[in-house]
Simulated assay, not measured.
Amino acid sequence: MRRIGSALLAASLLAGCGGSEVEPSSQPLVQQQAPLTTTDVDVAPECQGILGFVNTASFQKLDAYLPSDVATNLVNRRAASSFVSLADVSSVALVGPARLQQLAGGARTEGFIGSSCVGIMDGLALSSDDAAAIVSLVNTLSDSELHDVLPYAWNGAVNLLNLRPFTSAQDISNVAGIGDVSLRNIRNSATLSRPFEALVNAVNAQPQDNYNATMARHFDWWQVVTTNGTYHQPSLECFGLEPSSVPYGATVRPYLADAAEVRGVVNGAVSVANRFNGIPSGVISAGLANLDARTAGRSFKGCYMSYANDPWSGHSVAIFVDTVNGFSLMTDTYWAE
């Protein structure tokens, strides 16, 4: 954050760089530190043909694109069980990043994948839509959110900020400090909350009157916490931040938020925004189901704050940021006399 003199320092406020974190008693620390989850698929639907090629091409066909010993290893392994992911393919002896690229090239040449599959980058087979979403996200994220998304790649985040704007996902993949985990975190942030983001947009599209709510998925949490409230800011409570990084005037709650707390706050905001039933029920159900999938078993840092721009109105704001992968959201409920 340039506002406080250092991108790395500001990012550490919610990402927990260099300090101890308050962990919830219900979740082991080792689980919180795991950079990937079992739901992190590494092949986009548009790229499934790569696996189809590996699983069905004859030895002679594979041998045309790979060294013979590699083709032999793949054929022997698939005889026991079909490949289900790039990680699965990579577990075969002699198969590394270069061999994955050769397999993708073979799959494209043989018609197993088309232009909707961009290719393999840092262990991910990306669709053209996913690649475009990655570029858009990296080019527009605030520095605080980007560091939260990349808690294990401080240098990579700084390099992205210094080199953007980017025109391709491959250029992002090539940046020093961006590897398999980092690109996957970026992909997840750019693509895995689309139904919830549709709900956010629907909430924000509702008529604004003397009692309403808005939400945000991508935002600069530090700017929100430190600059809102031109009239007065009666309360600011934060949790999960390093003691030396708590915003001025805030009190500190000694425990993190969990999925139930996040869901409760979002439910409240959606109810306020939808009090005239202007949001389609399908958008609400899909958005909340997506939110549940993204928050289940997770822990969150963040802040609750209230502020007023004049004596006749007020805002109640809640901010949550996943302590590991940077998934973030904000709700803002507004009232006026």
Score class of each variant (00 low, 15 high):
88 D>H: 06
168 S>H: 02
47 C>Q: 04
322 D>A: 14
230 T>W: 01
95 V>C: 03
94 L>R: 15
27 Q>A: 13
211 Y>P: 00
103 L>P: 11
273 A>S: 00
186 I>P: 01
104 A>Q: 05
177 G>R: 02
150 L>Q: 13
336 A>W: 00
239 F>T: 05
212 N>E: 02
265 V>T: 14
38 T>I: 10
109 T>F: 09
302 G>W: 05
295 T>A: 11
253 R>Y: 08
61 K>T: 15
65 Y>K: 06
141 L>P: 01
29 L>V: 14
226 T>V: 05
155 N>E: 10
59 F>K: 12
216 A>S: 12
203 V>D: 01
10 A>G: 15
221 W>T: 12
297 G>L: 13
283 V>Y: 03
81 S>V: 15
240 G>W: 11
161 L>D: 11
13 L>K: 15
176 A>I: 02
55 N>R: 02
278 G>Y: 09
26 S>N: 14
15 A>I: 06
188 N>T: 10
272 V>N: 00
292 D>L: 11
298 R>K: 15
24 P>W: 01
145 E>D: 07
296 A>I: 11
113 I>H: 11
337 E>S: 09
35 P>M: 08
320 F>L: 08
248 Y>W: 01
270 V>T: 03
264 G>M: 05
57 A>R: 02
281 S>D: 13
36 L>K: 12
273 A>I: 00
102 Q>H: 08
226 T>R: 06
67 P>S: 14
52 G>Y: 08
238 C>K: 04
157 A>R: 09
16 G>W: 10
235 S>G: 09
133 A>F: 03
170 Q>I: 08
99 R>H: 07
126 L>C: 01
334 Y>A: 01
296 A>D: 03
274 N>W: 08
65 Y>S: 11
20 S>Y: 11
143 D>Y: 11
74 L>P: 07
293 A>Y: 09
217 R>S: 15
109 T>G: 09
324 V>T: 15
73 N>V: 06
313 S>M: 00
51 L>R: 01
68 S>N: 05
73 N>L: 06
